[in-house]
């Protein structure tokens, strides 16, 4: 979505509130601290509650199609996704605050799901044994931290409080709602070592710092 970040002619700087409302992202503005809901573009907490941002026209399309219609376009200086590589050779990197951890896909496949903390955030990282589907979830459910176990195509709470699809975190039973999906990205271990010298590789026997690996 693309919004005009302006209220009564005054530009707002918005950041990531990091909370979810209706399973959707929230923002905060640096001017008043109000909390905004992405899908409605409206402040839902704080001084600007009830204020809406205008939605601007945008398109979701493939780069090649966009380029054909807009040959003079500029492109955000950012990497595109990786393509053409075997996921098995890569690691899933989870990064919060100053901490990052790389989970080698080959080891994740053996473990099914890994329960750990990154930057103080309780996370579960899972990859399907025979497909390339992987996901990072918050293990904070209704204010409780749960341990997740893999059960076929599902994840189940070790305390029996719920069951979700492993691929998307959609609730299948229990009353905690869907799992919150957290960001992660794929990296070759060698690249991770180069660019995250303070990071660590997850191992079933304990994290191994990049500096000592």
């Amino acid at each position: 979505m693309v919004h005009r970040r302006e209220v009564d002619g005054r530009p707002l700087v918005l950041g990531n509130q990091g909370d979810l409302w209706g399973n959707a992202m929230t923002w905060f503005d640096h001017e008043t601290g109000s909390v905004w809901s992405q899908p409605i573009g409206e402040a839902i907490l704080g001084p600007l509650t009830g204020t809406r941002l205008d939605l601007l026209a945008s398109t979701l399309t493939e780069w090649g199609d966009w380029l054909e219609r807009h040959p003079d376009t500029v492109a955000l200086d950012a990497p595109a996704r990786m393509s053409g590589f075997a996921l098995a050779q890569m690691a899933i990197v989870v990064e919060f605050g100053s901490e990052s951890v790389a989970f080698p896909v080959s080891e994740l496949r053996q473990a099914g799901v890994v329960n750990t903390n990154v930057g103080g955030i309780p996370v579960a990282v899972t990859v399907d044994d025979d497909s390339d589907d992987w996901a990072v979830y918050s293990r904070l459910i209704d204010g409780r931290t749960v341990e997740l176990e893999r059960s076929g195509d599902d994840l189940v709470a070790a305390d029996g409080s719920g069951r979700w699809t492993a691929e998307r975190g959609v609730q299948r039973s229990g009353d905690g709602g869907n799992l919150d999906v957290l960001p992660g990205f794929t990296s070759f271990p060698a690249d991770y070592t180069t660019f995250f010298p303070d990071g660590a590789f997850w191992r079933s026997s304990g994290n191994v710092p990049v500096a000592g690996s």
């Binding site: 693309v2 601007l56 026209a57 945008s58 398109t59 979701l60 399309t61 493939e62 780069w63 090649g64 966009w66 380029l67 807009h70 003079d72 376009t73 500029v74 492109a75 955000l76 950012a78 990497p79 595109a80 996704r81």
Partner: peptide, 21 residues
Amino acid sequence: SDELIIGVEIDGDARAYPIGF
């Protein structure tokens, strides 16, 4: 070329933001 992007065009100024990022 099949990278998914959000495209925005204002007054002939077109910009692409890649979804993967």
